[in-house]
């Protein structure tokens, strides 16, 4: 589609090139999208999203996941919020009833994959670079990683994104939903500092609540900050260590997976 436009632009361009020589006038023809500026430069309309390569790939992933009835959840957080422990415990509860696979993104090491593989779920580790690489997982990386998974035998694909509250929110990977994990050892105002992340996610997990008695953390303030960015966002207060509060989170997740399977 883009090529069509490019060729069209190119034809028109030559037409204009041979007929218009008004270096002192700014001539614009709205039908061609080409403007000749006073300086003699020609402005060519492009109107293309910079990330559209990623978006097209994400749509393709989404199509494949729909065809195979795989529910895909993109889990994001800052480093150290307890994503991996939360997922370890989650896997222990939902496997083998919900056939789950995991894609783990880290800049470096296979530590997280080793921990998650204990559950028996197939795990694909993605290292964005050995010495400090990409800050997020992009759609083409997910496409490659799913090549090693038997999607026909999977109900749920969990993508543990690179620990980062900024960039992963910007990249669609073809997921069905996004959740963000934050913990009570971080600042209460994290949501307002990273609005896009909290805006883009469907639900939040507030982790490490077992530590609350030992901290000066104002939980209500944190919840207010979340709802300032995303009013009505469901927040699951959990402790990945003690599994306190896991019930509602697991129910929510199971209902989502079931919904997709039922749509088969």
């Amino acid at each position: 589609m883009f090529l069509d436009r490019l060729f069209k632009t190119s034809r028109v361009y030559h037409h204009q090139d041979s007929h218009q020589h008004h270096p002192h006038a700014q001539v614009e023809d709205n039908t061609t999208g080409i403007t000749t500026k006073k300086s003699g430069t020609r402005e060519i309309k492009v109107v293309r999203r910079v990330l559209d390569v990623n978006e097209k790939m994400a749509e393709e992933n989404r199509r494949v996941f729909a065809e195979k009835s795989v529910f895909v959840i993109n889990v994001m957080s800052s480093p150290g919020s307890g994503k991996t422990t939360t997922l370890e415990k989650t896997l222990a509860h939902i496997m083998p009833d919900i056939r789950t696979a995991v894609i783990v993104g880290d800049i470096c090491t296979t530590n997280d994959a080793d921990r998650l593989a204990v559950s028996g779920a197939p795990v694909v580790q993605i290292n964005t670079d050995e010495f400090g690489g990409d800050c997020h997982l992009a759609a083409h990386v997910i496409e490659k990683a799913t090549g090693g998974l038997e999607l026909d035998n999977i109900d749920l694909l969990i993508v543990e994104n690179v620990g980062n509250l900024v960039c992963p929110a910007e990249f669609d990977i073809g997921e069905d939903t996004r959740v963000v994990v934050l913990s009570v050892t971080e600042g209460e105002d994290k949501p307002v500092k990273y609005p896009l992340m909290f805006r883009e996610c469907e639900a939040a997990l507030l982790n490490k609540i077992d530590l609350l008695p030992h901290l000066d953390y104002d939980k209500q303030k944190a919840l207010d900050c979340i709802h300032q960015i995303h009013p009505d966002m469901p927040v699951f207060e959990i402790s990945a260590k003690t599994e306190e509060g896991f019930g509602p989170w697991l129910e929510w997740l199971k209902a989502k997976v079931k919904q997709k399977i039922d749509a088969r």
Partner: peptide, 24 residues
């Protein structure tokens, strides 16, 4: 209300390019 739609603010778009002859 908390139910809202973001009309603009997520853009990252190339609008146009301006080209000139080499050495101009």
């Amino acid at each position: 209300s908390g139910s809202l739609e973001i009309i603009s603010g997520r853009e990252l778009d190339i609008e146009s390019i301006e080209i000139s002859e080499e050495d101009t």
